[in-house]
Design a protein around this nucleic acid. Structure first.
Length: 415
RNA sequence: GCACAGGUGGCCGAGCGGUUAAUGGCAGCAGACUGUAAAUCUGCCGCUCCUUGGAGCUACGGAGGUUCGAAUCCUCCCCUGUGCACCA
């Protein structure tokens, strides 16, 4: 009796949310082999630590990795500390500025810490590609790159576009796909996962493995998750991301703000609800039997509860309802510590609200805060009208009433 | 190396000596409406300081220069693209 599930059952799970598999027949075959021999497949997905935090977009791939893990295969979480030196040109119309080694290390550390919210730490092999890429000297690099031609590289969409548009393409950027391919060789991968935008890079792995006498890896691509705007891919730098480290209120609120249309993609890629059920729900909404709002609530709870306890999730949901449905600031909102000196506040003087808002993280700059205050966007709990000027206070060690600017409300604890 | 074309605020893109923090579009933020959806309408959309209105500073690749005054003219430099040359 094999320790692996029958191939059909494995495929069911693996194919959910996968846009493309190269090739499906090969994957089946390899699963069969693994079942016979009892050898788990080696499955890798790489993440470049170019941003300080992981967001839900990253989790699409991580969740797929987990599926393999659940099926008993060997999962490799590859941290592209070396490839980050270049920066994946994917989706960029401009050359990335290289990160410093320090930034990369810091980011890698947080990745490592965050990824196990999804993957089983005990069963995950965490690797860094500096392990082998760092050892590849000039000669080695020449040998590896000699397997590719320039026109091959220029076929790649991003390069092609930039070439056509007479945009700069740095030579080292061409190396990125090569390096990613070499990762597969070094790790002897059976399967590599990646976003659909990674197709070219993933293919390079196959090519290179052939040259090195390995069986070309299967590649499995997942869709790119759109961010809150519903248009561009989720990315912290595009300011449309939901970080997996964000507090539950924040996460919940952001999820509730996505468009109805986008919600289906989130159901599909960020939950374990079977596809058939998602389709059914979608039908219900189309027929008017379900209010999209109700399903969005359910979706938000489902996702948030994957990162937080049910209790925290429900509190987030409740507070959201108070704030946005009843339009009342909840009593118990996030508290932020602010020192009186930070906002230039002295006893017996009115407090500078603009500085306070910045210190609380509700506004990006004093000027911006001032504008918003003038526009009447600031709401203070307990004060009827939206205020425009200073509120007088008692003395420094104290708590301000909850302040709301836009979608968020916080309490400043001043010391 | 030579020639030509370019480098403007998050992005695109006007402006080519002075009502110019710099037209317009996109994106973003806030408000109204709503389901914090979509659509729509309104305002905002460099920073800091005093403050219901002002003041100052910074900004058109970089450094100088001409001028009462420059994103706009001149010089040098840097960067990008294209073509040519070089590849003994």
């Amino acid at each position: 009796m094999s320790k692996f599930l029958p191939v059909d059952e494995q495929m069911d799970l693996l194919e959910k949310g996968a846009t493309e598999i190269v090739r499906v027949s090969d994957l089946r075959e390899r699963l069969e082999d693994s079942r016979k021999t009892g050898r788990p497949l080696r499955v890798k997905a790489g993440f470049d630590p170019t941003a300080p935090d992981l967001h839900l977009g990253h989790t699409v791939l991580m969740r797929k990795l987990r599926h393999f893990q659940q099926l008993g295969h060997q999962v490799i979480f590859l941290i592209g500390d070396f490839t980050s030196l270049i920066g994946d040109p994917t989706g960029r119309n401009v050359t990335r500025k290289p990160l410093t080694l320090e930034q990369i290390q810091t980011n890698a550390a947080t990745y490592k810490q965050q990824v196990f919210k999804i993957l089983d730490e005990a069963k995950t092999e965490v690797r860094y590609n500096s392990e082998w890429l760092g050892k590849l000297d000039y000669e080695g690099t020449i040998r590896v790159t000699s397997h590719f031609t320039v026109s091959q590289m220029l076929e790649r969409d991003e390069f092609h576009k930039r070439f056509q548009a007479e945009q700069p393409i740095s030579l080292h950027e061409l190396l990125y796909p090569v390096m990613q391919g070499y990762d597969s060789v070094a790790l002897e991968c059976d399967v590599e996962l990646g976003g659909t935008d990674q197709k070219f890079n993933l293919q390079c792995g196959r090519d290179l493995q052939r040259h090195y006498g390995q069986k070309p890896q299967i590649i499995l691509m997942t869709p790119i998750l759109e961010g809150l705007d519903g248009v561009q891919k989720m990315s912290k730098s595009l300011n449309n991301a939901i970080g997996i480290n964000e507090p539950p209120q924040e996460m919940y609120g952001k999820l509730m703000s996505i468009s109805d249309e986008l919600m289906w993609k989130y159901w599909e890629l960020l939950t374990d609800i079977p596809q058939s059920e998602v389709n059914r729900l979608r039908n219900e909404v189309a027929n008017g039997r379900q209010h999209p709002m109700a399903l969005k609530t359910l979706l938000s709870q489902t996702i948030v509860s994957g990162f937080y306890s049910m209790e925290e999730t429900l509190k987030a949901a409740h507070d959201w309802g108070t704030m946005h449905r009843q339009n009342v600031i909840p009593d118990d909102v996030e508290r932020v510590a602010v020192s009186a000196g930070e906002v230039g506040w002295e006893v017996n003087k009115p407090i500078r609200l603009d500085k306070l808002l910045v210190a609380m993280g509700l506004a990006p700059s004093n000027s911006e805060a001032q504008r918003k205050i003038k526009e009447g966007a600031l709401e203070v709990k307990g004060v009827g009208d939206r205020i425009k000027l200073y509120v007088p206070l008692e003395e420094p060690p104290c708590e301000m009433p909850p302040l709301r600017l836009g979608k968020r409300a916080k309490i400043a604890v001043i010391s």
